[in-house]
C-alpha cells in the first residue's frame, strides 16, 4: 500500500471554473469555462470543468494533475472586473483559520492536503476577478461580463505557455449557459 504516500507522475491539465451560477458574479468561473469550451477546441490532455462550489470536494478533481488553471472571483480592494493572476504559493499563503463549518470555500485546504499527500498539481494559475454583486439570481454584472473575454485570453496564454495551445473553432458550439435562461 505504500504507493499512496509516494509521489505519483503528474498528468493532464484542467481548466477549472469555480463559483455559484445562481449567485450573480460568483458565476464568473463557470461562465468563462462554458464560453471557452464553446469557442475553442482543447488539445488532448486538457479538459475544462465547471465545478461549482465544491469546497474540499475539489480534491479528487485536482489530485495528480500536471497543471491546473482556476478561474474564480477574488475578494480584493479593487474595482469590479479587475483581473489578477496568482500562482500556487500565493494561493496557499493565507493558511486556513479555524472553521466553524467544514465546508467553507476550501481551494486552499484542498491544495494543501494534496501537497501533504504528494498529489498537488505541479503548475497552478488562478485567474481571479473582483466581483461587483454577489446576490441571489443568475447572471453577471456589466463589469464582470466585460472581463470574461480577458479571462479567456489569460487561460489561452497559460495553455500556450504549458505547451498545449488551444485552437479556435471555425464555428463556435452553443455555450452551455443554462442558468441564464429567462423565466417566461
Amino acid at each position: 500500500m505504500s504507493e499512496e504516500i509516494n509521489e505519483k507522475a503528474r498528468e493532464g491539465t484542467l481548466v477549472l471554473g469555480l463559483g455559484n451560477v445562481l449567485m450573480g458574479d460568483d458565476g464568473f468561473g463557470p461562465t468563462v469555462v462554458a464560453l471557452l469550451a464553446s469557442q475553442y477546441e482543447l488539445p488532448e490532455g486538457v479538459s475544462a470543468l465547471d465545478a461549482g462550489t465544491p469546497g474540499f470536494d475539489l480534491s479528487p478533481h485536482v489530485a495528480g494533475l500536471a497543471a491546473l488553471i482556476i478561474v474564480d472571483t477574488v475578494k480584493l480592494d479593487a474595482p469590479p472586473g479587475t483581473l489578477r493572476l496568482y500562482r500556487l504559493p500565493e494561493i496557499v499563503a493565507h493558511v486556513p483559520v479555524v472553521r466553524a463549518s467544514p465546508h467553507e470555500p476550501a481551494l486552499q485546504e484542498a491544495l494543501l492536503a494534496l501537497q501533504f499527500a504528494g498529489q498537488a498539481p505541479a503548475e497552478v494559475l488562478l485567474v481571479g476577478a473582483v466581483p461587483e454583486t454577489i446576490d441571489v439570481g443568475p447572471g453577471l454584472s456589466a463589469p464582470l461580463g466585460a472581463a470574461v473575454p480577458h479571462a479567456i485570453r489569460e487561460v489561452l496564454l497559460e495553455l500556450e505557455r504549458l505547451g498545449h495551445p488551444a485552437s479556435k473553432r471555425s464555428a463556435p458550439l452553443p455555450a452551455n449557459l443554462w442558468w441564464e435562461t429567462r423565466v417566461t
Partner: peptide, 27 residues
Amino acid sequence: DPCLACAIHTLDVEGTELSKVNVFNTC
C-alpha cells in the same frame, strides 16, 4: 457535519498578485 457555507465561492487571497490586467481600457 454542518453544511451552510458552500453556496458561494469568492477566494480571499489578500493582495499577493503576480500581475494585473486592466480591463477598463475601453471605457
